[in-house]
Design a protein around this nucleic acid. Structure first.
Lengths: 137, 137
DNA sequence: GACTGAAATGTTACATCATTACATGAATTG
DNA sequence: CAATTCATGTAATGATGTAACATTTCAGTC
């Protein structure tokens, strides 16, 4: 029982707005707010935040993007093995903004162990490290 | 090197607004937004969000409250040993809202190990489990 | 081709969360 | 008691996220 959110397989192709939003996210290693994404898509006809949030919701469902709760921002998924139901964690550099995604079975095991001992049934876990990446120290 | 935020010792006594805000937080096991706290303090003369946020900032400094990033909400610290510089994690019940705070040395060790292997220097870590508490399953 | 239902998109308005800038008051200390 | 500092108060605004409803697109079917 891994504390991981459900991931729906992506549809055959992304819709226009989904593709636009994913394109922006995928083009940077910086986390972007929904409004920052919107600003970059004005020329493509997007005008309202809800259009971005709708696309983001689907990309999150598909496992193609992640939300960083501590930043209220989003990144494209860069995980090597998104199919495995492993807990994903993030290291966020407070200097350059770079986000590194990582997973580890022992982290899953630890959280599953704690959850079992407390009889807590996790559905979603947020783990975010803030600090300085190796290049910025 | 534990990835834990700096904690300033509390002053001799809390100021009036700090005490009011802490009183509200301490009276519930539910996370409260700053605006929910404000609503409960109208009768005590508080009128603006910034008054609550200022008090919260200090309570966070003193280690007397925590911010739940995934909820944009706050809880009183309920940790058994806040002096130990251990990573604090939260289990948040999505049914009843109850928040359980916990720490574990092995979690600290795991994060410290990962940080060292990546040469990442953490300053602050967010770990929040969402799910169902034992009473709500 | 026209009808139909579902999905995607568009538009407006609003709700919620958080900060900036500046003014006032109260306590401390040199 | 002047100067300083800290706490508080007030107003305005910025940043993030959602609700409600209208319109368009498109696939399947007749």
């Amino acid at each position: 029982m891994s504390p991981t959110a459900q991931v729906t397989p992506p549809p055959r192709t992304l819709t226009k707005n989904e593709a636009l939003v994913f394109g922006i996210l995928n083009g940077t290693d910086q986390p972007l707010s929904a409004y920052a994404i919107l600003d970059q898509l004005r020329d493509d006809g997007l005008r309202a935040p809800v259009q971005v949030y709708r696309a983001l919701d689907r990309l999150l469902e598909f496992g193609m993007a992640h939300r960083l709760e501590s930043l209220n921002a989003f990144v494209a998924c860069n995980h090597d093995h998104p199919e495995e139901a492993a807990q994903t964690a993030f290291a966020i550099c407070e200097s350059c903004g770079k986000v590194t995604e990582f997973t580890d079975p022992s982290l899953d095991e630890y959280l599953a162990y704690w959850a079992k001992s407390e009889n807590f049934a996790p559905t979603r876990t947020t783990l975010e490290l803030r600090g300085l990446c190796s290049a910025c120290q």
